[in-house]
Design a protein around this nucleic acid. Sequence first.
DNA 1: TTAAACTTTCAAAAATAAATGAAACTTATT
DNA 2: AATAAGTTTCATTTATTTTTGAAAGTTTAA
Lengths: 167, 167
Amino acid sequence: MEFKEAKNKFVQTWGALGSQWGINKTMAQIHALLMVSNEAVSMEDIMEELQISRGNASMNLRALMDWGIVYKEYKAGERREFFTAEKDLDELAVKISRERSKREIKPALKILKEVSTIESNNSAEEKHFVDQTSKLYDFVLKADNMLDKITEFNENWLGRLVLKIMK
Amino acid sequence: MEFKEAKNKFVQTWGALGSQWGINKTMAQIHALLMVSNEAVSMEDIMEELQISRGNASMNLRALMDWGIVYKEYKAGERREFFTAEKDLDELAVKISRERSKREIKPALKILKEVSTIESNNSAEEKHFVDQTSKLYDFVLKADNMLDKITEFNENWLGRLVLKIMK
DNA sequence: TTAAACTTTCAAAAATAAATGAAACTTATT
DNA sequence: AATAAGTTTCATTTATTTTTGAAAGTTTAA
């Protein structure tokens, strides 16, 4: 396999993986492209490589910057803007989990708390509901806190975590 | 908030969360419904509660059973089939991560290995590509193995893991 | 301040994913 | 072996999500 083919395959794969995890394909592809580029890339080039429209490129670059995993870069004597991706994978994982926690898990926890604290009558049905949603609340809260803690760690948290787990 | 409202809210929320994580809404909703039901539910009742068609219910129940998180149950003297969800949350998490690993991470790893082992010429561009995709391969592999290990643990792995991490 | 170079926005179009429903299929009962 | 009760399949329809592209907006520099 030669370089261009490999690069394309990587970008496509990353894009597909993204959609399976609720991140839109183009967003993931742009990220993939930037991650394997050794220098900052202009919007023009991104459009060209991925065959996407200007609007699409612009919106997804904005989204990636909102997530904090892509940065704008200005080159001396250049009018255009260039983009680079966070390339440190620990940093990337931390930012992604923070963002998903904030956007999805925190709001879900709020709802879980609400529904698990209704006052049930004494029917088995209602008791089970309260019991199960309370357990779920605790579980999700614990998992979310775990991610926070991991985040604080930082500096190769994954490696250190693996060591710890293996005992 | 009264029970019916709370139950509905929970089912809707779980459904929305599902779609954000690449699981279809109905599948997540059926799972939510079963999880908070204290007894097995018939397909008829699922259709009724979620206002979905028979085909939809059938296909998503099949998918949930393929994931190993919903079971069929037969009641004596009943012709119809009833369904229950895995209610143990540790077990649920383990099954979901196993399944996603098998379906998504393993295939992605295969591609990552392929593209990271092209023989690069000596351009900075190609060297960076090989370097970055190799790192990504290692990272994803490590994360995936971590999930496996956690899985083996089992019996309240999350609690034990949290303890470990907190030192 | 004007104009050129470039970026963003958003309504409409296209692509994708999910749901429907009727026909085919299965299984249990008489 | 016929029938009834129930389940699955899948071509078509519907809903949702993503993309486009042209107009509006910005910024820089002459």
